[in-house]
Design a binder for these strands. Structure first.
Lengths: 168, 168
DNA sequence: TTTTATTTTCAGAAATTTTTGAAAATTCAG
DNA sequence: CTGAATTTTCAAAAATTTCTGAAAATAAAA
C-alpha cells in the first residue's frame, strides 16, 4: 500500500497548503483526492476516503465544479453523479488564479482606485503622501496584471518555457 | 476629516484582503495603518487607532518587523519604541512574497519532491498517473520560480516596466 | 402517480483562529 | 541597585470558520 500512502500524504499536504492560503481544507483535500484518482469518484466514495460528512463533501465538490476545475461525469446505468478533476495543471492553476483575482483582488483594486480619486485633490503633505502610497500599490498591481495577461495569452502548453528563454 | 476617512477605508480593505489570503486581520491592519501614517507610531497609538489590545498590537507589530517590512525607530528623549513602514511597494511586496514562499510553499515542494521520488518506481498505470500529476505540479512551480527569480534579479525600480516592454 | 435514490440545504455543534488583558519579564533612568 | 516605564507572554475568552447530520428538495424509476 505504498502508493495509497503517497496519495494520502499528497491529500494532507494539499489540505494544509490550502488552509494557509485561504482555501477551505476540505475543498483542497477533495481537489487533491480527485487529482490523485484514476477514476471518477462519487460523493459517497469521497466522503468515505476523506472521512467527512455528506454536507461538507457536497459543498466542497460544488465549489470545485463552480471553479471549473472538477467536472461532473455520468456513468451509464448509474444514478449517482461522479466527479473527475481537470488534470492539466496549467489549466486548473490558471482557473484558480483567475477566479481568486476576480473575487478577491479586483474588488480591492476598485476601492483603491476610489480612494485614490478621493485623495487626489488633497494638497496637504500628509494627503499627498497617502495618495502616493495608494497609487503606488495600484501601479504595481497593474504592472503585474499586464505581465500575467501576457503570460497567459501566449499560446501553447510550454508558454512558461518560452518566456524563460525569452528572458535569458 | 475626509483624509482620515480614506485612510480608515484603506485600513479596513487591507485587513479584509489579508484575512482572505491567510494573513491575520490585525497584522494587515497595522501594516495599512503604518503605510498610511506620515510619522512613526508607538504601540499605544496603534492600539488606540485600531482599537485592539496591547497583546495583539505587540504581536502584530513584531510579526511585521520580523517580515522586514516595518522598522523600529527610536525617538530622542522618548523611552517608547516607534514604528515606521517600508514605503517602497516593490520592496515590501517582495519581502512578503519571499517570506511566504519560504515558510509555506517551499516545505510543500519538498514533500512533493519526496512523493515524486517514492512513486517513481511504481509501474502500475495508477502509480504512473499519480506520479505524473505530482511531477507536473513540480515542473510548473519550478518554471514559475525561475520566472520570478529573473524578474526580481533584474535591476532598478522599474524592472516590471522593462519586462513588459521586453514581452511586447 | 408513488416510491425510492440521490442531492442540497442550513441550523446548530465543533473546531480553529484570533484577541484580550493581566501578570511576568525586561529595560532604563535616577 | 531601585523602581517606574515599557514590552512580552500566554491562558482563557471571544469571534470566526468549518463541519455535521437530519430534514427538505429534487430527480429518476417503477
Amino acid at each position: 500500500m505504498e502508493l495509497q500512502e503517497a496519495k494520502q500524504q499528497f491529500i494532507d499536504t494539499w489540505g494544509a497548503l490550502g488552509s494557509e492560503w485561504g482555501i477551505n481544507k476540505s475543498v483542497a483535500q477533495v481537489h487533491a483526492l480527485l487529482l490523485s484518482a484514476s477514476n471518477p469518484m462519487s460523493t459517497d466514495e469521497i466522503m468515505e476516503k476523506l472521512v467527512i460528512s455528506r454536507g461538507n463533501a457536497n459543498m466542497s465538490i460544488r465549489q470545485l465544479v463552480d471553479y471549473g476545475i472538477v467536472y461532473k461525469k455520468h456513468i451509464a446505468g448509474d444514478r449517482k453523479e461522479y466527479f473527475v478533476a481537470e488534470k492539466d495543471v496549467l489549466k486548473w492553476a490558471m482557473k484558480i488564479a483567475v477566479m481568486r483575482k476576480q473575487k478577491e483582488l479586483d474588488p480591492v483594486m476598485d476601492i483603491l482606485r476610489e480612494i485614490s480619486k478621493n485623495t487626489e485633490k488633497d494638497k496637504t503633505p500628509e494627503g499627498k503622501e497617502f495618495h502616493k502610497t495608494v497609487k503606488d500599490i495600484q501601479v504595481l498591481t497593474d504592472q503585474l496584471e499586464t505581465i500575467a495577461n501576457k503570460l497567459f495569452n501566449t499560446s501553447g502548453g510550454d508558454l512558461l518555457l518560452k518566456l524563460i528563454k525569452l528572458m535569458m
